[in-house]
Amino acid sequence: MNIKSAVKIEKSFYGTTIDGKQVDQFSLKNEGGIEVYIITFGGRITAINTADKNGKLENVVLAFNNLEQYEKKNPFFGALIGRYGNRIAKGTFSLKGIEYILAKNNGENNLHGGLKGFDKMVWKVENVEESTSFVSLKLSYYSEDMEEGFPGNLKTTVTYTLNSNNSLDVLYEASTDKTTVINLTQHSYFNLSGNFAQLIEDHEVEIDADKFVPVDASLIPTGELTSVENTPFDFRTSKAVEIAINGEHEQLKIGGGFDHCWVLNGKGYRSVAKAHHKESGRVMEVLTDQPGMQFYTGNFIDGTLPAPNNGVYAKRSGLCFETQHFPDSPNHPQFPDTTLEQGEKYATKTTFKFYVNG
């Protein structure tokens, strides 16, 4: 940590949880104009400061000012999500003939791991690494067998790496001692304007996907994979969110906007999405090896949560690009498998890359 380099990492005290656990904050910085702040509570990203086309450095992720607000009910701002990101229908699934019962914390369904998912845990710092071209923070959490109803003792590590090329890598790894299901993701809300009083409807979005996963009234997949052709869900060519989100489509009515999983084209680690804010010039590119991505437009943000500028977060204040497997996959055998067996290693990588374009 004493290496002189263009990239550096620093640690500071952030707060103490209501049950007395210390929470630390780590700042990852490079000379390319990126500063990333991460706290050990939920492994949450609390800020990504990046320059606009005029060199002005601003935070582009929705966040709170203090730990107390993160401990209260909130829409998973900046959090690591597990064991299972997204929804599981009626809070149940079966593995090898055994039915597992989960909490119903989203209507009749289980959402983002349950009542106390990975977003509410204090993660352990496994390693901090600094070099001339990158800095990384490795966090771990040990989830005991049957925690929130999920089988198997699960050891999870997530490594955040800020590179000198202004990209933030998120590497997820896990192992289990019993057959289980897993679907980890990162739940940051992005607003590339740097002004959280502005809505994200002026952001132009591109998603490399020919199909999406339609849902029923409770936002559970119907089991179909539907073409985006001639629908508001077609982001294969970049377009403004406001153009698409105001389209006439039953799925938009169900989600109150976009809250759906796109079936990403291609396989392996590849570029899958971009967001561009013309006024600021900021662009964020998303790369992943995952089969799906939940694109969410902050439809359930209700104007009650405090923003750092003494205002409040309004509906559609932020965009989420949650790379993952499909929702409710344990109950849809035709979907890509989310089962993790004893002796297997779960490993997946997502990158958020930032740059400026006019």
Rank of each mutant, 00 (worst) to 15 (best):
N2C: 05
K11I: 01
G15V: 09
G20V: 01
K21F: 02
E31D: 14
V36L: 10
A47M: 08
N49F: 10
A51L: 08
G55N: 12
E68A: 14
Q69W: 06
Y70R: 09
G78T: 10
L80K: 08
G82Y: 06
N86E: 14
T92S: 13
F93P: 04
G107F: 08
E108C: 03
K124F: 07
E130N: 11
F134V: 03
Y142F: 11
E144I: 11
S164A: 13
V170P: 00
S175E: 15
T176F: 06
T179L: 09
V181S: 04
I182S: 12
S188W: 02
S193F: 04
F196Q: 09
A197H: 08
L199S: 15
D202I: 06
D202T: 15
H203P: 03
V205P: 00
D208C: 02
D210Q: 09
V213H: 03
V213G: 05
A217S: 15
T226A: 13
K239T: 08
V241Y: 06
E248G: 02
K253G: 00
F258Y: 11
H260C: 01
H260G: 02
A273G: 05
A273K: 02
A273M: 04
K278D: 15
Q290A: 13
Y296K: 03
T297S: 15
T297G: 08
T297N: 08
T297I: 07
G298W: 07
G298S: 09
N299T: 09
A307S: 15
P308E: 14
G311E: 14
Y313E: 12
S317W: 03
F321D: 00
E322T: 01
T323W: 08
H325T: 11
Q334D: 13
F335I: 07
P336Q: 02
D337V: 05
D337F: 03
T339H: 09
L340V: 09
E341G: 02
E344N: 14
Y346D: 12
Y346N: 10
T348I: 03
